[in-house]
């Protein structure tokens, strides 16, 4: 249950077309205190920084930068990466992202050739949730039995490997007969007058 508010984007001080914009969706209202993964589609943003507000001791709140100038477009004057989808994972963050009360996105685009830049389809996932289609890559649930770990191989590692093996078998099981049949007619008929525009 971590749907986000629409990011409210503010034009940076530089005015003009290049520059910096901020957006701050509010994870508190979405009740999402822990960050596992941030997914979004880029739209002509060259660099992204993320700042989070964490609840400290005695109710104090502090803004910390957890991602600094992450490059989304390898060459800001050209298209590469301009409309790609990105995932930012917890392990890429510079600091802990637990007990987060607010997140702020700082978008930078040094190139003046683009009329507009933003990020779209922003989604923030807590640890329990995974991106659709990618569910098997999420790390396995934590193993509580600390003592056993000394004797046994790292359960996380084993679990990931087993999960991957399992995925492969699932994929194979789900597979329909793939032999090329090569039929293009419908019940032996392929009489066509005109092409359809839709």
């Amino acid at each position: 249950p971590c749907t986000l508010l629409q990011p409210c984007l503010r034009r940076g001080d530089t005015g003009g077309r290049c520059g910096c914009r901020c957006g701050r969706p509010d994870p508190v209202r979405a009740r999402c205190p822990q960050l596992q993964e941030i997914v979004f589609r880029n739209f002509y943003t060259a660099f992204l920084s993320v700042r989070v507000q964490r609840a400290g001791a005695e109710g104090s709140r502090k803004w910390v930068t957890c991602l600094r100038d992450y490059r989304l477009m390898p060459s800001p004057h050209t298209e590469e990466g301009s409309q790609d989808y990105f995932s930012l994972f917890r392990h890429q963050m510079l600091c802990d992202v637990d007990q987060v009360t607010a997140v702020r996105f700082i978008l930078r685009q040094p190139s003046p050739v683009w009329l507009h830049f933003t990020i779209e389809e922003l989604q923030i996932y807590p640890p329990s949730q995974k991106v659709t289609g990618c569910w098997w890559f999420a790390p396995p649930p934590q193993c509580g039995e600390g003592d056993l770990r000394q004797e046994l191989p790292d359960p996380e590692k084993v679990s990931t490997e087993v999960q991957q093996m399992w995925v492969l078998t699932e994929v194979i099981r789900a597979r329909q007969a793939a032999a090329r049949i090569g039929r293009f007619d419908v019940d032996g008929c392929y009489d066509i007058n005109l092409l359809s525009y839709t």
Partner: peptide, 16 residues
């Protein structure tokens, strides 16, 4: 490009 078998315009089972 997509089309339909003659006389079956718009019926998805006859889309080719």
């Amino acid at each position: 490009p997509k089309s339909y078998i003659r006389g079956k315009l718009g019926i998805e089972e006859y889309a080719v």
